[in-house]
Simulated scan of single mutants.
Amino acid sequence: MQLKAAIDEFILYIQIEKNYSTHTVISYEYDLDQFLAFLCDHDCSTGLADITTTQVRRFIQNQLGKQKQKPRSINRKISCLKSFTKYCIREKFLSNNFMDSIEKPKFDDNLPVYMTLDDLKQLFRSIENDDSSLSIRNEVMIKLLATTGMRRSELVALTWEQINLSNQTIRVFGKGKKERLLPLHAALIPLLYEYKETLREFQIYPTEPVFLNKNGVSLNPRGLHLIFKKALEKAGLPPSRFSLHHLRHTFATLMLQENKENIELRTLQELLGHESITATEVYTHVEFEQKKKAIDSFNIF
């Protein structure tokens, strides 16, 4: 069987049977197509049974070297290939698992980048004073991300039936379509009502997307990214320093730093929709780093 045909079968499987999110399906397809392109570029056989562990290692080396891929991306590609080969063996497309001895490279753990409380307040002041035509939409989106910790893919996928203003809750579908219920901050309720008033009646139908672009169609992650970068620039914050994912880090970090007496790590894990508590523990490291800086700056000697 050819690799391309196996990829097509696998993508169909995770899309239909596993019901993976659109974002995950696109990422998996992109990673597998990259591997296929690598084999073609290096005149290797693209027969599924001909692929070797050495070729996979050279692909990883190529991604780290020439392609300058980040550690997170490399580990995602390895996870993708492992899932793919596991599926191929189960379906009897493949008898020898060429990913068996491949391990994820060890990288230095970097503490997550996040905005300080002053940075966040500066951003909020700026968007609150913005008088552009879509300013209320932008304010709702950025404040929702900052006060719930949801992912940008989760935000752009929101429909009105997921928001319950009476109960002050929002229902989010995370990775693997897993559902979690998040409380809405009280300050967001009047803002959401105000935003709702700016929309036409058919646009607030339960199954309609909550956030629309300037053309009146559902906003995509790329569009949200550009809106956030412009908001940072207007607020006098460096757009190159922060991304939307850093806003998620900001939520988690400030939650522990400013509100630690009211939140446990397990609660934060549930708010963020992390599969494992290990992923959430990185924010305790951030808090420790702040403590260390405080001690180091205590100039008494």
Rank of each mutant, 00 (worst) to 15 (best):
K18T: 14
L134C: 03
M99W: 07
K106E: 04
E179D: 05
E29D: 14
K77Y: 12
D50T: 10
P238H: 05
F301K: 11
K175M: 08
L81N: 02
F211R: 00
G236E: 05
P105D: 15
E128K: 09
E281R: 05
M99N: 01
I263C: 10
L36S: 05
A6H: 04
D41C: 13
F98R: 02
F124L: 06
R248Q: 15
R171N: 10
L182K: 04
L134Q: 15
Q122G: 03
L32T: 02
T159P: 01
T46L: 12
N262K: 15
A187T: 14
R222M: 14
I51N: 10
Q168K: 12
T284M: 08
F107K: 10
I136A: 03
I60C: 04
M1W: 13
L155G: 01
E233G: 02
S166D: 11
K229H: 05
Y20F: 13
T267S: 14
P221E: 13
R151F: 13
I102S: 12
S132L: 12
P112Q: 03
M141N: 09
S45W: 13
E258L: 12
S297D: 05
N62K: 09
T22K: 15
K4W: 07
F124H: 01
F93K: 12
Y13E: 11
P238W: 14
L111E: 05
T198Q: 12
E91R: 13
P105F: 09
A235S: 07
K143L: 04
D8R: 11
K178G: 11
K234A: 04
G47P: 02
I142W: 00
Q69W: 07
I136V: 14
T278L: 09
Y195I: 02
G176A: 02
V172L: 05
N62F: 08
P239F: 04
E154A: 08
I163A: 03
L32G: 06
P238I: 04
K175I: 11
R58I: 10
F242G: 06
E161I: 05
D50N: 10
F173Y: 11
L64A: 06
F35A: 08
Y114P: 00
M1C: 06
E270Q: 12
Q15I: 00
K66V: 08
T54R: 15
Y205W: 01
T169F: 14
E139T: 06
P190F: 09
Y193H: 07
I136E: 01
Y193V: 05
K77R: 09
A279I: 10
K86H: 14
L192S: 03
S95M: 09
K86N: 13
D131Q: 06
A279F: 13
K121H: 07
E281T: 05
I74Y: 09
S243T: 15
D130M: 04
P206M: 00
R241I: 04
P190N: 13
N220A: 07
F93Q: 07
M1N: 08
Q67D: 08
E161K: 02
K86C: 14
L111Q: 00
T148I: 10
A49S: 04
L232K: 02
F35E: 03
E139V: 03
E197A: 13
K70G: 08
S135E: 01
